[in-house]
Amino acid sequence: MVTIANIDLDDGAYVEWAGFVGDVPMFATADGDVIRVEGGQTVLSIHDGLLCAELVQSGDALLTGGEDGKVCRINSDGISTVLTDLEDSWIDQIAAGPNGAIAFASGRNATIIIDDKIASEISLERTIEGLAFAPKGMRLALARYDGVELHWVTSGGSTQVLEWKGAHTGVCFSPDGKYVVSNMQENALHGWRLKDARHMRMQGYPSKVKSISWSPKGKWLATSGAPAAIVWPFTGKDGPMGKAPKELGSMGKLQVTCVACHPTEEAIVIGYSNGMILIVKIEDGQEVPLRSEGKGAITSLNWNKQGTQLAFGSEQGEGGIIDVTS
């Protein structure tokens, strides 16, 4: 039995992030509101314009960055704290690392906060377009034009530069820390195997890849950007090189806009441009529909820790919680 509880959001509000903070469902809109759902809905006015949101690694707080220059932390009880205020500079990127580490970027500058103190500040010559902590939290990846830089989270130490020509607009590490993968302005991903900086080109998408998700043990990398979820195998020592990706959840010409791997099982929830959501098993491609369609493209999908509930949001003021326990 699949049940959907729909959430009331402002008409047309764009959901930037939908998920669970602790056990509490929350929906962060581009307008800057965070809607908290626990025995009713509460609207928290966090930003004048929200640009990015990410769950801390423990899962019990949401980090947000806004057009108002603020970086905020929202606890599961709804209490919010302003961590930084850069006034009128946009906070473009935010990332969470182990032990409560936080990194955020505004334009060409990034700040790393560890134990509530500034551990390092990094300035690049080009705009920082993606941020991700390495799994152990010792290094931070920064995506920029012509490549990705890996900086130590405390000042000092040498920077590793992973070069690849073109604009890199996002970055992530594989869960085992062996690979770095970037989204590109072109319809492609680019990857590097860290031990030897070997390149991995993941191409052939009809549009930009905006959503990517690793399966829990890092065997698969699920991606949007095509009329199916494109799922790259990272099972051998060479990553996906020389292997064809799986194409899952193909629905004719419908574009996949969002993907989220299940936290424990090898399954992916897929969101589409028409608001449809379905879950598919990676192994055999078996599909279970969760939502038939909506008013707009799915923009965010996140599981709760147990993998029993799923929160979703769309670009047209829709949000909801799907219970998948049968």
């Binding site: 047309g12 764009y14 581009a30 473009d92 705009t127 034009y145 604009a167």
Partner: peptide, 15 residues
């Protein structure tokens, strides 16, 4: 690239 990023972000808040 700056216009791509800014225009895309601005377009999320209609009206």
């Amino acid at each position: 690239g700056d216009l791509i990023r800014v225009v895309q972000k601005l377009m999320r808040r209609k009206g």
